[in-house]
Design a protein around this nucleic acid. Structure first.
Length: 108
DNA sequence: TCAGTGACTGACC
DNA sequence: GGGTCAGCCACTG
């Protein structure tokens, strides 16, 4: 089923620990193909209808908050991340290398 | 049904 | 080192 891909994306995002972030590519790679990152993005686009998806913890490979415009406020995504101890500067995660969380590392 | 689009990424020139 | 192209999957008109 195609919705399984979405379900897996949501499942991974929900497993992101507090104070950690991941990338579309990491999720896509975890699900099979790094090139499926677009679909991950589309899944996040649909995630707004779910209130248990921490989409603010998902950024692109540069650590840039590319999806912040999809939140209620442009600074909401930044505020949520900073609230978790993540430093944001110019819509970009400063200590991205430290905050990065790889889904594969958490694989059961 | 076909074509276009999207919160992306990697490879190529 | 920067711009362009193609691939991925799902949704919409």
């Amino acid at each position: 089923m195609s919705e399984k891909f979405f379900n897996q994306v949501y499942d991974v995002v929900k497993k992101i620990p507090y104070g950690k972030v991941t990338t579309y590519g990491a999720i896509a790679h975890y699900l099979g193909s790094t090139k499926s990152a677009r679909t991950v993005g589309w899944a996040m686009n649909n995630s707004h209808k779910y209130n248990n998806i921490p989409a603010h913890r998902v950024v692109n490979r540069n650590g840039v908050l590319t999806g912040k415009h999809h939140f209620a406020g442009s600074n909401l995504m930044k505020q949520l991340l900073e609230n978790e101890g993540i430093i944001i500067k110019n819509d970009k995660i400063v200590d991205f290398d430290i905050c990065f969380w790889d889904p594969g590392k958490n694989k059961k």
